[in-house]
């Protein structure tokens, strides 16, 4: 087997650049998840409401976001919204918008199912004790839902990190793009670099996502 191009990684600060690209991807998913959680909780509470029109609209939103591939959503925001609304969007911003829309939908559904899984007598008892609606949610319902929610939302984090690999397609320089640039730059002196670099990127993604998945599973076992 010829050399696998791992030497390219050791050249200059190439490996550091890969990590930087990975950091860009992780940053996008962290910002998105931080925004998705509060929005998702709001959406989830809204979805358990009684207003039929609101329920229909939120359901429509949820189903549309869920059924469309994330890449299609990225295209819709990055190419579609910029064209029809005439504004300018950077790749990163478009990515965060899409991931927040998506994360809010997923989170909202998790919150909704967690809320509806709380037995009815919990609501009724707290009402009987004279707690107001907001107090009921704050002191009785949310603490119980959080336990169920946490492992599932951690899973959402890994899904988001994995999905950030797509932002390459709308021109954001993340880890795959950085890898591509390195392979291009070393085309002459290290023609096999693609193997080594893509393998390393593969391993890097695994190293980011695996511990998070493990943590989610452990929590699920503990609290499930």
């Amino acid at each position: 087997m010829p050399d696998l191009g791992l030497d390219v990684l050791l050249k200059g600060n190439n490996f550091f650049r890969l990590l930087e690209g990975l950091l860009a991807a992780v940053k996008i998913s962290m910002v998105s998840i931080a925004l998705s959680i509060p929005f998702g909780v709001l959406l989830g509470i809204t979805m358990t409401g009684k207003n039929i029109l609101v329920r229909f609209l939120t359901k429509l939103y949820l189903e549309f976001i869920r059924i469309m591939p994330q890449l299609v959503l990225l295209f819709l925001v990055f190419f579609g919204s910029t064209r029809s609304l005439g504004w300018n969007l950077e790749g990163e911003t478009a990515a965060v918008i899409v991931f927040v829309l998506w994360g809010t939908a997923e989170m909202g559904d998790l919150v909704r199912s967690a809320l509806t899984s709380i037995p009815k007598h919990q609501y009724e008892s707290s009402r009987a004790l004279g707690l107001a609606k907001r107090q009921t949610y704050f002191y009785i319902i949310l603490p119980q839902t959080l336990r169920r929610l946490l492992p599932l939302s951690i899973n959402l984090v890994t899904r988001m990190v994995k999905t950030t690999s797509l932002v390459l397609m709308i021109g954001v320089v993340e880890v795959l793009k950085a890898g591509q640039q390195m392979i291009e730059a070393n085309r002459m002196n290290s023609p096999n670099a693609a193997f080594g670099i893509y393998l390393v990127i593969f391993i890097l993604y695994f190293l980011v996502c695996w511990p998070v998945s493990m943590a989610a599973r452990r929590l699920e076992k503990k609290w499930g």
Partner: peptide, 24 residues
């Protein structure tokens, strides 16, 4: 299962399509 679930398809495809040919 752990490897497959914790890496994105895009990265898997890049490795299979662009990486593997370099290893023959």
């Amino acid at each position: 299962i752990e490897i497959s679930r914790n890496t994105p398809l895009l990265v898997q495809l890049f490795f299979i399509y662009y990486g593997l040919p370099k290893a023959g």
